[in-house]
Design a protein around this nucleic acid. Sequence first.
DNA 1: CGCCAGTTTGACCAAGATCAACGCAAGTGG
DNA 2: CCACTTGCGTTGATCTTGGTCAAACTGGCG
Lengths: 247, 247
Amino acid sequence: MLLPREGRTAISRFKTAPSSSTIVPNSKQVDRLDAWEQIGTRRCFNGGEEIYSDGDAADSSYRVVSGTVRICKLLTDGRRHISKFCFAGDCFGWSAVAGHAASAEAVDHVVVMRYPQRAVKCLIEGEPRLLRDLYDRTLHELGAVQHRMMLLGRMTAAERVASFLIEISDRRHTCNAVDLPMTRTDIADYLGLTIETVCRELSKFKRDGIIASAKPRTDRILLRDRAALEAICDSDAHDHWVGAAAA
Amino acid sequence: MLLPREGRTAISRFKTAPSSSTIVPNSKQVDRLDAWEQIGTRRCFNGGEEIYSDGDAADSSYRVVSGTVRICKLLTDGRRHISKFCFAGDCFGWSAVAGHAASAEAVDHVVVMRYPQRAVKCLIEGEPRLLRDLYDRTLHELGAVQHRMMLLGRMTAAERVASFLIEISDRRHTCNAVDLPMTRTDIADYLGLTIETVCRELSKFKRDGIIASAKPRTDRILLRDRAALEAICDSDAHDHWVGAAAA
DNA sequence: CGCCAGTTTGACCAAGATCAACGCAAGTGG
DNA sequence: CCACTTGCGTTGATCTTGGTCAAACTGGCG
């Protein structure tokens, strides 16, 4: 329940964290945060830049300070799948065993903390309790993945898109406005659909008054009827699958 | 790299492990195996029986001694998704945080070791190195899930079925005969397809001479041309995604 | 033998993909 | 300032993959 952990932003002396950070860690936690601070270095990337590539040596793990990162994997014929979007506080690149199994790319302008694997290893050896944190985070993410597999394997286009809107809304802690920093193509690749289908479903929701677009902006959507969205992708409990972690 | 870990069977004084176990652990490992033995209890289930249910309190984790277990999740309208098949040596039920997020059912006659969470916690506190093992296993499984998400989100029916045959073949360490203890319906729910589509793809492979059924048995398939199967689901590296773990 | 559960095959259907065109805002260069 | 381009989003027409429905087949078993 401490850093690096999703849904929580670093209390950083570099003041890179959004000031919206609301959770005040106790002194014990601050120690641990501090430990991570010590071994991490700040890195910035512009939208479209690659943070690491599929197959790269897994010499570092990351945590997002600000901006959005997509974790994606390509098939040789160009088909793409995005396994995860990472927002401020989310971690990625931790599950690599012998090289990263996917690439990480900046969606917009991104600031990340980079933790060298060797330093992480040392840190854990000095403070075994940190390993417990990492383990818990990973278990949590593995549980979250259950839901995504169900979504990709068994849910309809409408259910996927509704589910996506609710997921993003929950993860960004917004009540009825959802910011979508990623393109429609990114969303499609995340949901296992095509860009046209994503558009059509969004249009359908608009027509039904369930959502509205914050015209002329295409990257912001207003949830007019959250209950209706939830009903659409009902079926499955929306409890313990929000949040994400290592990749 | 020790127990509980997939692809390796317990050296048990209850001699429940298939005698095909080939890896001889060193004395250090035997200690750890022994530690797990101490806190685990043997349980048996008949095909179709439920080991635990979606939503159950996560008071135990499991390792398969023999037989096959399916981890599955239901939508309210009956749609089902199987997130994992567990064979001898595989672990399941470890990623539950506040209750199991899916149910576990015996596919055929199954023997498992059951590890109470409390005992696991104690064991880890006494021997922190075990936590590292659990963490590694979970990271490994998270990496493996990448491939399944790509499969469910972006691969065609033929690619899914071919990929499945290769996965099972690899995981069961058979060269050209694949045993399929699960039904076609199970396979379909695992691959995000219908039973008819699975049948049709299998028939197509048979017609093309890529596979053959070990008539009259429907639960055994012969891989006549493994290279062709690999070519079909090529695209993606088949390296580090074999094996599975907590659920 | 007849029943049963699982599998296979065929005919038809529909969700979503593909192909194509258009809209629209933000550059860019004259 | 205005043409022109470019990248993304939206919409429509059409096609294909895989789903649905239905029937036949198979082996096991009382």
